[in-house]
Every structure is written in C-alpha cells, then in structure tokens.
Design a protein around this nucleic acid. Sequence first.
DNA 1: GGCATACTTGCAGTTACTGCACTACAACCT
DNA 2: AGGTTGTAGTGCAGTAACTGCAAGTATGCC
Lengths: 209, 209
Amino acid sequence: MSTEPGARRRGVAETTAAIERATVDLVLEHGYDGVTVDMICRAAGVSQRTFFNHFKTKDAALLGPDLPRIDERAAREFIVSDGPLLAEAVGLVRIDPSRLPGDPGLMARRIRAISADPLLMARQMERLAEIEGELREIVELRLRQQAIRAGADEAELAGIAEEAEIVTHLLAGVMRYVGMSWSRRAEDAPPPDGAEVAEALGRVIRKLA
Amino acid sequence: MSTEPGARRRGVAETTAAIERATVDLVLEHGYDGVTVDMICRAAGVSQRTFFNHFKTKDAALLGPDLPRIDERAAREFIVSDGPLLAEAVGLVRIDPSRLPGDPGLMARRIRAISADPLLMARQMERLAEIEGELREIVELRLRQQAIRAGADEAELAGIAEEAEIVTHLLAGVMRYVGMSWSRRAEDAPPPDGAEVAEALGRVIRKLA
DNA sequence: GGCATACTTGCAGTTACTGCACTACAACCT
DNA sequence: AGGTTGTAGTGCAGTAACTGCAAGTATGCC
C-alpha cells in the first residue's frame, strides 16, 4: 500500500520513543481526556495501527513500559534483617527503566502529566498489584524467620500467612504514600529519601499501638 | 417511535433493579469481559440508551450505586477514643445501601461477581479514594487531640498533617485487606468480624516496630 | 379532550481497540 | 544478481463503550 518513502527508516525503539514523547507532551497540554489517539499519531507521525502495535492501550503510552520489579539482592537482605519492616520493604521495589530514556526530562514531564489526574495516579498504583504476590512471599519468609528465632509455637506459625497478607496490604498503602508525596514535590526534586520515609513511618507506627 | 406497548409500565427503581440483576447474573455466567452492554439490555428488556440513562458506565451497573460513606457518629467516637487506631478506623466507613435491594441475595451474587475479577476488585477499592480526604481530616483531628493531651510541642504538632496522610494510606491498605478477605470466604459467610480484624492487626503492628 | 411530566427510545457520531491482509524495506543465502 | 525471509509499518473493516439530540408513549391532572 501507499507506505510513505521513509517508513522502516527508524527502528522500534525510535518509534516507541516518538510515540511516548508525543503522548506526554500532548497530555501535559490538553489533559488526558483532551487527547485522542489520533492526535498522538499525527504528532508522532505514525498510523493508529502502529500506535497500538507499540502500546496495548492509550494508558500504556503515557505511563510508560517500566514495570515495578523486585530487587533480588534487597530481598535477600530484607529477609534476615531486624530493622523497621515497612520502611525496609519500600526499598524492595525498583522501577528499573528497561531502557534509558533518550530524552532526558521525559521522565519528569511524564510524572507531571500522570500526577495531574488522580485517575491516572490510581492506575499507576494498580501496577503494584502485579507484584503483590511476590512481595507477600518475601514478607512471609521474613516473618517466619523471625518467629522461629523467637521460639514461636505451632499456633503462632500458623497465623503467619495471614499476617504477611496484612503487611503486604499496608505496604501497598505506604508505596502509594511515597508515590503521591513524591509527585507533589517540585519537578526537579530528588527521588524520595528512604531515611526520611522511615523516620515518618516510625513515628506513625508508634502511635498506632 | 415503535416503543413496545408496556414501556412506561415500571418506574425508575424497577428498571434500575432489572438492569442490575441482569448485569450481575450475566457477569456471573460469562465473566465481565464476556458480557456486552447489548446482552445486558436484551436480558433486562431495555434499550442501550436506557441502560446509559440509568448507569453512567458498565462498571457502575455491576458495582452498584452504593458509595462508601463516613458514619458521623462513629467518627465522633473515633476522634476521642484511645483504642487501636487502625482497627477502629475501619468502622468509620459504611457501605450504606441507598435503597434496600428488592432481590435478597443480589448483594451476595454481586460480591461474588466482583471478586472473581481482580480488576473489578481494584475498581471497587478505588471508590474508597473518594472519601480519603474526609478520612484524612478525621484522622488528623484525632491525632491532634491526642498530641495536645500528651503535651506536644510546636514541632510535633506541625508534623501531624503528614502523619495523618500516612495513616490514611495505611488505612486504605487495611480496608483492601478486609474487603479481599471477605470476598474469599464462603458466600453465605457473615460480614467480617471487627474484633477479629482488630486482633490480627494488633499482632501485626507489634511486629512492625 | 388537552397538557405537562416521566420514562423510554432510535439514530448518528466519537473514541478506544482488534484482526487481517498487505506493502516496503533490509539483510541474508545461493 | 535473484530469491527468500524477517521486520516495521499501513489501511480497512469491524466491535464495543459511551454521548447528544430529537423524538415517541404512557400517565396523571385539569
């Protein structure tokens, strides 16, 4: 068909990046609902079909392909540690970008675009749910380890699975807090400080009992 | 237009109920993605336009119109209480049904339908976000009250707003846990037992420090 | 009977998204 | 060189959720 001369000039990565850039910039300008996939396609110079070949959904083009992952090394340390559980657990999750963004500042603009809309923010947080299972297992390992060291009896050990479940849900709350408080800062702010979060969490937990 | 004889026979409430029933039953049978709005309309005996006059979205027809609300009386007690914060806070939220379901058991079937799909479960939980602001204010009031009684200084009081924010996010996690653990039980199980949740939470929080 | 009101409807249009068949280009093989 | 294969992209037709508009029909009230 009438493919313009020049198609196939750029590789996958370039096209993907072009779509991402167009999406973020347009959303910053018009808001998420004010942008249609067609607008993005025109701005990125691709057909709609190509857009959906690169991203499963409109959301995905804005949120980016970077899924949260568990840092294996941190997990091993976490399991045997005796420090503050929730604060340490926050460090388990890494948002490791699968590829460095060719456009510096894209990350910052993306975050600004996402945090402008609470629905998108929620959608972003939903991604955490995908690793919740793994997280629960790790937490359970740690709790079991500690219980055994403390000489727990049969009954106590039996309850650990449920405790891990609760902790994981609390943890999801903490992550949401960290994410939100990060997005509220100035755009050039550094990533959230682990020690600071740990300190605030410690204060809060003392009041919960 | 060719409105069938018999339109206008039933009032709003009846039509709404018919749509809800059809939605829940069809989703139970085919799963959320296996059901189209058209199918629901045929089953409920209404046009698609009418469907969308009664419910803003397909989601809404399944999740039901009952928004979570804050129990004012419980809130007043909560603010001055000295008990376990998180466990007590769970009691603040009520899912008060705006109208009694004409079909008993619809509630149970609905819950079964929702909890079958994790995405819907997440969507359901998102509704909590709508009252998060109110919740945060109430938590902040309580924390402030306690801090003053304990003779807190200026610096401590300044940090309370952020602490309330953290607690609210933790609370969202707890609610999610309660909701999920409820949906996992047998369908005829009673609503979750507050005391039970409180006990489990207490055990967990002791381990967090 | 006439009239306002409540409830419903059809229709046309937009937007997100999918499957299929196809082209253009590049690299590789013989 | 000529043919094959693989990759990146396109067009088109179709489905599904949803919206605005302009109606139609039954009902209660005068």
